[in-house]
Design a protein around this nucleic acid. Structure first.
Length: 588
RNA sequence: GGGCGUGUGGCCUAGUGGACAGGGCGAGAGGUUCCUAACCUCUCGAUCCCGGGUUCGAAUCCCGGCACGCCCGCCA
């Protein structure tokens, strides 16, 4: 609705400017400030003042006079305030918002017939998922949801590093050390049990082993890597046992968020199918290839650092395999999005540059970078075992949410008798929602210092604040359905938006109307946090309506329309939360 | 040293060329016989890191600093 209205305004405004003899390249369409109830504004008069030889307000008035609102769908009239043009919506606009806002898929944009693969998380399968990298699955999942809503055909991939040095080392350690040499696992889950071998390998090689022992270990690690490079089945199986076990455990944690994947794509796949070798051969033939100190490197334009693509020992590197991986993505998808930590920034640029050299159109590849979550005392590391495990954070979040629910039980006004299952459900929805919202609502590029109190604040700008809107709307509708005399179907069929004439009702309609446009720009920018900002603004509008407009006790001539408004509002906030990957509780 | 990113009231954060910089936390004062008070209303609080520049107009763009984070491995 908003999108159609905006398109109509753009078209009509352009035609108007053209008729007046002004250039139409800058329409200056923008959102009016909060205290102006217009749906759209334009600041074009500023730029046209010079050309017109008249002050901006005068130009604005001239344009407003010439603008024929009758030509413009959903627009009732245009007026000016100083140099600004304000466009006012027609009743038909609100009527359509009230109608379409009730659709299950409200906010979802038309199919673009474009496939996109969203790769995120892709954490090395070395141990438990910790909070330092928790931004990746949360942002990645939201980006995937967002693109899905925006009309793309989305697949979610986790790229599994099962071929690197770290994994060879891990495999060697798993086969070498006895469990009796290891500390108790922090949890009874495969990745917590397995990471002990990995940590042991690192302390052993760094501090405990003598030179001969290091050499022996090194030889074994080398043989695993060489085996993988040669496509040797036995080497692959040795590594797979470790990788698959750890990955299963990590996935179980990620599912709690929930972050799910359509496919786990293993690096070794691109060694076994020969595509990595193919990339290497093609790179060697380019003008950028240099052979230096036994290694093949790429002297990339615009990047100072050479990209080594074949080691002195003949094995490939992570980025080499990632090149084959990305060509595979280009073969199978129209577009690719990767969510990466800021530490991969240089590597991502090298990858893109090398892909370009290989003849790929890298405009099809976009990356979203995020900064690490750090502790007040510093970074988190799987290898060193420092940091907060995501499982612990989620457990704590759920426990605190449960306390909140139980504390509130006594002074609940509504006698809906929450069962033990309800309390459990709410604790999960709110606890996990709070963690996700805290992360997804911020610009990914900003650094986050993890603090328990801040991450688990259930008040104000948080998931529960937004979820509460959904619960309130659901409560009204539940009451309406089994209450006396109100037919739930009435909500859907009663579309007299004219009855919704108070400022708070109008504002809520305007907020509902914005949602598809929010999806569109957030998807274009790959900015899921823009949707989080929207949910907050939406919640404010809903709460104002809730305070001022009774629904169940509304005058007879308004009740149907208000119920329809509540249905639309509930649908909108539910879908917005869905984009963010946050559950929308029916009660809390 | 070089590259990338970030810098907004005491703290956290939105806003990346246009209408008085929007929220939250915090502090203070109110609000529930009425659909859930995880809510709402009011008050307090900002040299938008600093200095130049572009523009009718800059938190936003450009240049130069400063501070913090990340990267600069034949690791990933």
């Amino acid at each position: 609705m908003f999108l159609a209205m905006r398109a109509a305004v753009e078209e009509t405004l352009a035609a108007t400017l053209d008729r007046l003899g002004y250039p139409t390249d800058d329409l200056g369409i923008e959102q009016p400030p909060d205290d102006i109830d217009a749906v759209l504004a334009s600041s074009a008069a500023f730029r046209l003042a010079g050309e017109a030889g008249a002050p901006p307000p005068k130009v604005a008035a001239e344009i407003a006079d010439a603008f024929d609102a009758a030509d413009c769908q959903y627009i009732d009239r245009v007026d000016t305030q100083g140099p600004y043009l304000n466009f006012w919506p027609s009743e038909q606009y609100f009527e359509h918002v009230l109608e379409t806002g009730q659709d299950d898929d409200y906010g979802a944009l038309p199919d673009r017939e474009t496939s996109v693969v969203v790769e995120h998380t892709s954490a090395n399968p070395t141990g438990p998922v910790h909070v330092g990298r928790a931004r990746n699955p949360i942002i990645g999942d939201a980006v995937a949801n967002l693109l899905d809503y925006a009309g793309y055909d989305v697949e979610r991939h986790y790229y599994v590093n099962d071929a690197g040095r770290q994994i060879a080392t891990f495999t060697w350690a798993y086969e070498t050390f006895d469990e009796s040499e290891l500390p108790e696992p922090e949890r009874e889950s495969p990745e917590y049990e397995m990471v002990r071998y990995y940590r042991k390998a690192n302390t052993y090689l760094e501090d405990e082993a003598d030179e001969a022992e290091i050499e022996a270990a090194e030889a074994e690690i080398q043989s695993i890597m060489q085996g993988l490079e040669a496509g040797d089945e036995a080497a692959y199986e040795r590594v797979s046992e470790v990788v698959d076990t750890v990955l299963d455990g990590m996935y179980a944690t990620l599912k709690r968020l929930p972050a799910t994947f359509d496919e786990f794509v293993k690096e070794t796949r691109f060694m076994r199918d020969g595509s990595t070798d193919d990339v290497i051969e093609r790179l060697k033939e380019t003008e950028y290839a240099v052979y230096d100190e036994d290694a093949w490197q790429l002297d990339l334009p615009d990047i100072d650092k050479n990209l080594v693509f074949v080691r002195g020992d003949g094995t490939s590197l992570y980025t080499t395999r990632d090149l084959a991986h990305h060509e595979w993505k280009f073969d199978n998808f129209d577009e690719a999005v990767t969510v990466l930590g800021e530490d991969h920034e240089l590597q991502a640029r090298q990858l893109k540059s090398a892909l370009e050299i290989l003849g790929n159109d890298t405009d099809r590849l976009q990356t979203v970078h995020y900064s690490w979550v750090t502790l007040p005392e510093g970074g988190m590391s799987t290898r060193e075992g420092t940091g907060v495990d995501l499982d612990d954070l989620l457990d704590e979040a759920i426990a605190r949410a449960r306390e909140e629910v139980e504390d509130r039980l006594d002074d609940r006004i509504r006698d809906d008798d929450l069962t033990e299952d309800d309390i459990d459900r709410i604790a999960h929805q709110v606890g996990i929602g709070a963690v996700r919202y805290d992360i997804v609502s911020k610009q990914p590029t900003k650094g986050i210092t993890f603090e328990w109190e801040r991450a688990l604040d259930f008040e104000a700008q948080s998931a529960p604040y937004v979820q509460y809107v959904h619960a309130r709307a659901s409560g009204i509708l539940a009451e309406a359905t089994d209450g006396e005399g109100i037919n739930a179907d009435q909500a859907v069929t009663e579309l007299d938006s004219r009855a919704l004439d108070t400022p708070s009702e109008r504002e809520l309609l305007r907020q509902i109307a914005r949602f598809p446009a929010v999806i569109e720009t957030a998807a274009d920018d790959l900015h899921p946090h823009a949707v989080a900002t929207y949910t907050r603004e939406f919640a404010e509008a809903f709460n104002a309506f809730y305070r001022e407009c009774p629904v169940l006790d509304a005058p007879a001539d308004k009740q149907g329309a208000r119920l329809a408004l509540v249905v639309a509002a509930r649908q909108t906030i539910g879908n917005a939360l869905d984009v963010l990957g946050i559950e929308a509780p029916d009660s809390m």
